[in-house]
Design a binder for these strands. Structure first.
Length: 1138
RNA sequence: GGCCGCUUAGCUCAAUUGGCUAGAGCAUUCGAUUCACAUUCGAAAGGUUAGUGGUUCGAUUCCACUAGCGGCCACCA
């Protein structure tokens, strides 16, 4: 785009060759007519980054500079930046920039979180589109995909964070899976384990069948829905009818609970009945529990200890047996009984209600409201299941040497204490109550997850011990493919994809006869044709899972050779092909993975001789020597039951012998727990794990590492934790728990909670509603500064904020206004002051131009100068205190009002007139204008960093020559400026201002065209003042002339009003509409009468005059007097009109 | 069921420990425009501060209740 000024200059020079004008251009900053953020922002961000000033180590700071630090809440490494992130970044950057300018040692540490469940779910969805599951890929390959996905999205998020203008220190960027952070996770885990705060427990957990993982209590969401409440008896002669919305779980009932006060059932308590629900006999005990609601259902509740939290607790209290009938796959298991095994929960429900109906056991079915528990990531209904998992004990009291918090205190005690005694302050305060409520009711925290992505648990099991467990083993039946075309010719196929021969097909049909397909829980096959065909013939209708890890060894160059040739290469491996160890690797990978899923189940594998050989090696410990390798698998079924000790069985927690450590044990007999840790475990360490010295290998112990990490000393605890109230529990609470424990310090001093971003009507932004706003699109359209302002102004902590395009547009206009103010001030300032006199003005670095103004004699300033400087001084004070108190919206609003209404609409306009009327004041005026602008740029910089920095660069900044050319607004000092205007001067200015407004009003009301120049008559006090300011009043009131009189005089044929006791008349010879003017005056009189009545009532009240503050009483008296005067004058005027 | 919040102009929001005529922006209406800015300037209209009662000289502000809306937590099967 061609620039306005350079374009002009080009014309002039060529046409006239006028050197003087071209000389001016040297000092004329190039500023296009409208601010164009798109051209400016990236350039400015680059400039900041290159300056190194995002990194506090590069700032020139006082030795004892106070620290100010924020850990950026790591956006999930998934997807893209949304408005929620944008608002978080706007707030944090605002605080950071403000404190940096105040001279603090300021660090904003950015990073990303691996967000285990969210990320894994997302990648699963992506590969599902390719028709695959994570099991198709296997743990390793799947994690590879996740890594790749994260790389991409992290890059996107980082760039978008930069787009928001975030001044964070990228040199300290962290990721929860970094080497150092991962070690911190293991260290803290081990420390907690050794302190007895982490334990393995067997209890009900929230299980998501889709994620195939546990969830923490607060990762479960609730959805209201209608459900059928079934009333029925276990069998006809059972005395009590129970009610339930989940009949299928009743197959696992071991008791019926009633309220001890319930007269209906009292007599049955403690009796035991034998019942049969069609799945075998069992005992049902009648127990009493106060928690049972007598008014719900029949007041009697079937107790299912294995599949309900509440029932589990009752079972513990009453020593009831626990029957697990639903498995980890969300399906009914063996215990559910014949006919139920393998059914989904819903299928089982249908079948069971049918059974009840057939046996006439159902009394009635009622529709009730129910809240269904669902997974917060994938909305799948949660199954409560008993399971052995790892927990953090939140109530266990411990004492830690050198930790001031943990002196016979539990994690919960400390987390409550630090907020209660205000070591951590939560803004807004009301969330403290929410926090206490949550923390007080916190149960032990389940931290193990059956996900693949995340920090692996630093737990190892002694392998032998798990083999003893028969139940958990997977049973394998291996079937070699039948005769292929290659086999028939004695040229084994290897990777050549040949089909079965006729004879082969016949062989397969024979095998099919002896195979009971329904015995198998899953059938796997190699992806080669001969195996696929074999599998299809044998297993017919059963689903077959193809896995390319099961293919034959690659013979490489020898593909198509005879067996006798091949045998020579089997031990050493085939040239350009595979070795058997390669095959062993992929088959092992396959086994490890399927074992996780098919514990205690029976699978079939249809594959090749090569696969059989490595199975013999892996499972039966046969060495990979010529004996084995030159032999071949027989046709038919080959069974494997015993599993080699190298194998872990990932989800089983049956081993008694456990090793917990930061590094894996040396002895190979140990296998690591395949579970991963809850994401929030690692995020809970975020404030300090990110500050630990990342060159961690030089520290032997955790304590040493913590004690010697310089950043930790400098920046921890973080000054502010700024985040959305939605993750107060997930994250904020966990950081408090974990950090006080691990470091003996609170993680942060203040918590600032922002609200959720909503649309104009308060609705959540969502794809389905189509009301989502893409921050990047808004930045493209209106600029980052406008977006930032629209999120900060008009929002308060803890309250949701509504955002819509018109709002952003409004702030775009404001940014442009600032731009144009600068476009007016800077060129003349740079030309007149900086280029000619600037250097001689102040050589002293310490003096900024603000102090220089103080040298100007107060009396030489005009009324407008005094007013604006006084107001500016007050503004600095207010904005500073607002920002210190986290009143960001207020500060922004004040800045906007001052800049637009006071500075641009009044002072700037007046300054033009005053310069015109008295050219000698020009330099002083330019300095004041520039001073105001520079100060405003500084004040506004934390809100709108880009435009202010860009405007700043247009100044030459000569008062501080040492910084010439490299001065960044970002690192300027926060303004301090004291200018006291005299009270009476402020009052005088306001009188002038109000008079001008009154004149404008009269003109507008009476439709006097602006072009029509009229005169005005001022009668009353302050004649000198009006005479002095006549020029300004005339220009701004669009008056032709001004008559100022101190004495009373008659003014007929004029429209009139009264401002602070001064009469203003606009004579309109021949044009005056008497009737209208009369009406107007009547109206004004009435308004004044109202005021008199109100003031009179107050003053007549003794209580008021005695008790109200003096100033207020004085004010009321003054008001009363003014109104009385006004009425007298208006009445006079009224008479004149007749 | 428990806890928390909200209700002010057509819309989005203000109003410092209770005290000036309850303020802004957007939208609306009227008027202007070569001079930094139409992403502009000047002006108008728009309010029983959800309702009722109380405390107080004085309530948008404090208290109680009512109505409506929203959120969080909780083991009603």
């Amino acid at each position: 785009m061609l620039n306005y000024f350079s374009h002009l200059d080009f014309d002039i020079e060529l046409t006239f060759g006028f050197c003087h004008l071209s000389f001016i251009n040297v000092f004329m900053p190039e500023m296009p007519k409208a601010y164009n953020p798109r051209e400016v922002e990236d350039k400015i961000y680059k400039k900041w980054e290159e300056s190194g000033a995002f990194n506090p180590d590069n700032l020139e700071l006082a030795e004892d500079a106070e620290k100010f630090s924020i850990a950026m809440p790591p956006p999930n490494a998934t997807g893209v930046l949304h408005l929620g992130h944008a608002s978080m970044l706007a707030y944090e950057d605002l605080m950071i920039r403000y404190n940096r300018m105040k001279g603090k040692r300021t660090l904003w540490l950015p990073g990303t979180d691996h967000a285990a469940i969210a990320t894994q779910t997302r990648v699963e969805k992506i590969i599902a589109k390719e028709g695959k599951t994570k099991y198709d890929l296997g743990r390793e390959k799947f994690l590879e995909r996740v890594k790749q996905y994260i790389e991409d999205s992290r890059h996107t998020i980082k760039n978008q964070t930069k787009k928001m203008g975030s001044s964070c220190d990228w040199s300290r960027e962290r990721y929860t899976l970094d080497d150092g952070l991962s070690r911190a996770v293991r260290e803290v885990f081990v420390k907690m384990y050794n302190d007895g705060l982490i334990y393995k427990g067997d209890r009900i957990v929230n299980w998501c069948p889709r994620c195939e993982s546990t969830l923490a209590d607060d990762e479960v969401e609730h959805k209201d829905q209608k459900a059928n409440l079934y009333y029925f008896k276990y069998q006809k002669d059972f005395p009590i009818t129970i009610a339930t919305t989940r009949p299928e779980t009743k197959l696992g009932d071991t008791a019926v609970a009633v309220n001890p006060k319930d007269k209906r059932y009292k007599k049955y308590i403690n009796r035991v009945y034998r019942v049969d629900l069609g799945n075998g006999e069992r005992e049902i005990k009648i127990i009493a529990d106060r928690e049972v609601d007598m008014d719900f259902g029949t007041g009697a509740l079937g107790v299912t200890p294995a599949h309900s939290m509440a029932d589990w607790q009752m079972a513990q209290k009453n020593n009831l047996p626990i029957i697990k009938i639903i498995g980890e796959d969300g399906k009914m298991n063996d215990n559910a009984g014949k006919g139920y095994k393998g059914l989904t929960v819903l299928e089982a429900r249908e079948k069971f209600t049918q059974y009840l109906e057939e046996n006439k056991l159902i009394e009635k079915v009622e529709e009730v409201d129910q809240s269904l528990s669902i997974c917060y990531r994938c909305d799948t209904p949660i199954e409560p299941l008993p399971s052995k998992q790892w927990f953090v004990a939140v109530d266990k009291k411990i004492t830690i040497k050198g930790n001031k918090y943990f002196q016979n205190k539990s994690l919960k005690d400390v987390a409550l204490e630090v907020v209660r005694n205000k070591e951590i302050k939560i803004i807004p305060e009301r969330f403290e109550k929410t926090y206490f409520n949550w923390m007080e009711n916190l149960h032990d925290w389940c931290i193990s997850r059956q996900l693949w992505f995340g920090h692996r648990m630093p737990v190892w099991y002694k392998s032998e011990s798990r083999i003893k467990n028969q139940e958990s083993r997977m049973k394998i039946t291996f079937i070699r493919h039948c005769q292929s075309e290659g086999n028939a010719k004695d040229t084994p196929d290897g990777r050549r994809d040949s089909a079965l021969t006729k004879k082969g097909e016949e062989q397969a049909k024979e095998i099919a006869k002896i195979v009971q397909a329904e015995k198998y829980d899953a059938v796997f096959s190699s992806t080669l044709k001969r195996a696929k065909q074999t599998a299809n013939i044998i297993f017919g209708e059963k689903k077959i899972i193809y896995d390319d890890r099961l293919v034959e060894i690659d013979f490489g160059d020898l593909t198509g050779s005879r067996t006798s040739e091949l045998d020579k290469f089997r031990e050493a491996g085939f040239p350009n092909g595979e070795k058997y160890t390669d095959v062993a690797k992929r088959v092992k990978d396959f086994l490890e993975e399927t074992e996780g899923k098919y514990q205690g189940k029976h699978i079939a594998i249809v594959a090749h001789s090569g696969v059989w050989k490595v199975l013999e090696h892996i499972i039966n410990n046969k060495p990979l020597d010529s004996n084995l390798l030159n032999s071949h698998a027989d046709l038919g079924l080959i069974e494997y039951e015993k599993i080699n000790s190298k194998f872990q069985i990932p989800n089983s927690k049956f081993s008694d012998e456990v090793y917990v450590g930061v590094e894996s044990p040396k002895n190979e007999d140990w296998t690591q727990d395949s579970d991963t840790l809850d994401t929030w475990f690692s995020s809970g360490l975020w404030t300090f794990s990110t500050l630990l010295d990342q060159d961690h290998k030089k520290y032997k112990t955790f304590e040493e590492w913590v004690a010697n990490s310089p950043d930790l000393k400098k920046f921890h605890p973080m000054s502010v934790m700024e985040t959305g109230y939605d993750i107060l529990f997930f994250w904020v609470a966990r950081m408090i728990l974990m950090t006080t424990y691990a470091t003996g310090e609170v993680p942060f001093e203040n918590v600032y909670l922002h609200g959720m971003v909503r649309d104009k009507h308060g609705r959540k932004m969502s794809k389905s509603l189509g009301n989502g706003i893409d921050p990047i699109e808004m930045i493209e359209k209106y600029g980052t500064d406008a977006l930032r302002l629209s999120m900060i102004v008009g929002s308060s902590p803890g309250n949701d904020l509504r955002i819509y395009e018109e709002k952003i547009e409004g702030y775009r206009n404001f940014v442009n206004k600032l731009w144009n103010i600068s476009r007016y001030i800077i060129p003349i300032y740079v030309k007149n002051i900086e280029s000619e006199k600037g250097n001689s003005m102040s050589k002293n670095k310490e003096l900024d131009i603000g102090y220089w103004i103080l040298d100007i004699n107060y009396e030489n300033l005009t009324l407008a100068d005094k007013w604006i400087l006084g107001k500016l001084s007050g503004l600095i004070e207010e904005v500073t205190s607002d920002l210190d108190n986290c009143e960001f919206s207020q500060a922004g609003e004040k800045l906007r009002d001052f800049i637009w209404s006071d500075f641009a609409d009044w002072y700037l306009e007046i300054s033009k007139i005053e310069i015109k009327n008295n050219t000698e004041t020009k330099n002083v005026k330019d300095i004041i204008l520039a001073h105001c602008l520079k100060t405003l740029l500084k004040l506004l910089h934390p809100f709108t960093p880009f435009v202010t920095e860009e405007i700043w660069s247009k100044f030459k900044h000569t008062p501080n020559p040492s910084q010439e050319g490299r001065s960044l607004l970002m690192t300027e000092k926060w303004p301090k400026f004291l200018f006291k205007a005299k009270k009476e001067d402020i009052a005088d200015f306001n009188l002038i201002k109000n008079s001008i407004i009154a004149i404008r009003n009269l003109r507008a009301e009476n439709k006097i065209e602006p072009a029509k120049k009229i005169k005005a008559i001022f009668i009353g006090k302050k004649t000198d003042l009006f005479k002095k300011e006549a020029g300004v009043i005339k220009k701004l009131g669009r008056l032709e002339d001004l008559v100022i009189e101190s004495k009373k005089m008659k003014v007929e044929k004029a429209i009139s009003t009264i401002v602070d006791g001064v009469e203003i008349h606009l004579p309109l010879e021949g044009l005056l509409d008497f009737k209208k003017e009369l009406e107007r005056i009547e109206k004004e009189i009435k308004e004044n009468e109202k005021k008199i009545i109100e003031a009179g009532r107050n003053l007549a009240n003794k209580n008021f005059t005695e008790r109200a503050p003096k100033e207020i009483v004085e004010e009321v008296k003054e008001k009363l007097k003014n109104s009385r005067d006004a009425i007298i004058k208006l009445e006079e005027k009224k008479k004149l009109l007749f």
